[in-house]
Amino acid sequence: MIDQETYKQFKIVGKVLTDHRYNTSHSGNISMRAGGKILIKRRGAMLGFLEPEDIIETDLYQADSGIMLSSTETDVHRQIYLNTDAMAVIHAHNPFCVILSLIEDEITCLDAEGIYMYRKIPIIEVDNPAGPTDAAREVPKVLKNYPIAVVRAHGVFAKGNTLYDALQNVTGAEQSAMFRYYTMLTGKPLKRDYSEEKHFSEW
């Protein structure tokens, strides 16, 4: 069973994601590395109301019988850990990120916080956006160089040193996407396009 302190982190992060309406009642998953293992949300559990037995332990390097309980996207998390510097991973269905992924090839941040944190948020195209197989192959490639990426029409995968760190990337990216979306909605030209000045295309 998981220790109380770790459980508390999962519970808080799960609740924030649900309260922000980044997920449906049961979707989304969060995990952290822990001593050669992955601690990950249980499949079918409600992210906003996690209990200690909803945090499942599974092997970091290969599938084990924990797969019977762990999140559907466990393989994506595992590949992110094995191929990037991630210590924690969050997958959420951020609405504004998903909306922009339907019409753009990357999300260029317009707000100062977003520019400071991300500059641009890559969008990944996969054949089967709802399935973990393609995402497990493609998402780690992008997260090697970015803290967060969006799988088109699906949702974001964010990494961090801790769960809270990854949470900040999820919420920060969503806020930048929201600013961009509403700005686009006005139909008016930007007074100043920070993204152009910072050579975002090379970022």
């Binding site: 019988s65 399935g131 197989t133």
Partner: peptide
Amino acid sequence: IDKIKVVPITSQGLALFGTAALVKV
């Protein structure tokens, strides 16, 4: 089949470990 391939129980757990995957669970 697409759905069966997505769910870890059917795509990995039972194939890799058989029903004995349940022992530790």
